[in-house]
Nucleic acid binder design. Structure first.
Lengths: 158, 158
DNA sequence: CCAAAACCGACTGGTTCAGTAGGATTTGAG
DNA sequence: CTCAAATCCTACTGAACCAGTCGGTTTTGG
């Protein structure tokens, strides 16, 4: 498995926040209820997102979380990296601040045999993640409103 | 980290086998020595490769392993899958026998919010892996010969 | 004041990782 | 025939990570 449920739950959380149009914050328990995810686990995940500057929080009664930016400006590579840590195909692979890729065990002779492969893999993953915006996911999963099939609907913010 | 050292070591092992042109089998201890990897761990990995039909073995004295096919015909998706198990971005993602992708928790309403994302990621990874042959890695890592440890350059890589 | 909410850290059972250990079996060579 | 080299097989282990749970503190609106 490439990613753990941290990425899965965290992205679902972000999508849920991205649905809400206004600036009213949404409580975690609302999200947990809507997505059927454990609240106390979501707390850990949203903390990572907040530290990464992707969501903002307001404390106290009627508090909650909002996206820190419009969903069109949020690409999923940033989200996943915030949740899972730096995404690299292999332990020996590190992205330098200037963007270059380093393999820790390429010695005096040119290249280790696997570098070409992992470079391609990382390129594929990065392209897929960075080429997807949160707005796309919101759109894909049913637009601005939660699905209303079956008569059940979320309590409208009033 | 997307993959563990099983993929790393296993691919290095395959490349080492791919270097040898003839049909003489190479012992695991030779590979372990050349790549500086623990022999007893390599035994586990090569067992997976053998069960996947990627290498053949001959037992007894002067035995060892050979590639089951010419390296041009071996794509890395098969190798990595043999080592790591089915490569999917997420637990809920399963590739059906007919090639379709299923997300286990898409319920009555259309799609779960993350499916679009993971589909793209899996596409990127699969494309990178399936688009790379073992022959390419052998070529990239210094052709048929082992690297000369004297500051020699890999000028012939194309 | 009170309840709702964000925040924080500690803890836990389960699984995987990265090997190690100890053997059993097969085979070529002397 | 015997020995050494090799594949093959099962079991075990310490460490790390996963997926939560729990209890408690702080902030805030009504």
């Amino acid at each position: 498995m490439l990613f753990s449920t941290k990425a899965e739950y965290g992205v679902r959380l972000m999508v849920e926040l991205g649905r809400q149009p206004g600036s009213t914050p949404i409580s975690l328990s609302t999200v947990a209820d809507a997505e059927r995810l454990p609240l106390s686990y979501l707390e850990h995940l949203v903390a990572k997102l907040r530290k990464a500057g992707l969501v903002t929080s307001t404390r106290g009664a009627h508090g909650g979380y909002r996206l820190a930016m419009p969903p069109e400006e949020i690409t999923l590579d940033v989200v996943v990296e915030a949740l899972e840590g730096q995404v690299a195909p292999m332990e020996c692979f590190h992205r330098m601040p200037d963007g270059r890729v380093l393999c820790s065990h390429e010695g005096d002779d040119g290249a280790c045999a696997t570098k070409l492969l992992w470079t391609r893999v990382q390129g594929g993953v990065t392209k897929a993640l960075a080429g997807t915006t949160l707005a796309e996911l919101v759109e894909f999963s049913g637009g601005g409103e939660k699905a209303v099939k079956g008569g059940e609907k979320i309590a409208s913010a009033a």
